[in-house]
Amino acid sequence: MSILDWIYLAIVSIGAILAVFRMFKGPDVTDRVVGLDVLTTITVALFVFFAMVFDRYIYIDVALVYGLLAFVGVLVIARFIERGF
């Protein structure tokens, strides 16, 4: 990893920590879910970034599947909060 990669990782990691902070603090359930949603998007970006850094093509597929599952997950949680059960 070059120094540019490390700086990128540092900026994005601070963002991820802030999202986790909101997940723990959030006064409402929905606040926590929003934190999770942000964390998911950051994770997808990081997966693709690590694919580049470690030169592993397969990580991009992992990012795609993770993004798909997280999207469905957020929709399910939204429905769950709205209707109960």
Binding site: V12, G15, L18, A19, R22, V34, V38, I42, A45
Partner: peptide
Amino acid sequence: LFLGAFGLI
């Protein structure tokens, strides 16, 4: 990405 998380706080 950082600004989005910062706005969250």
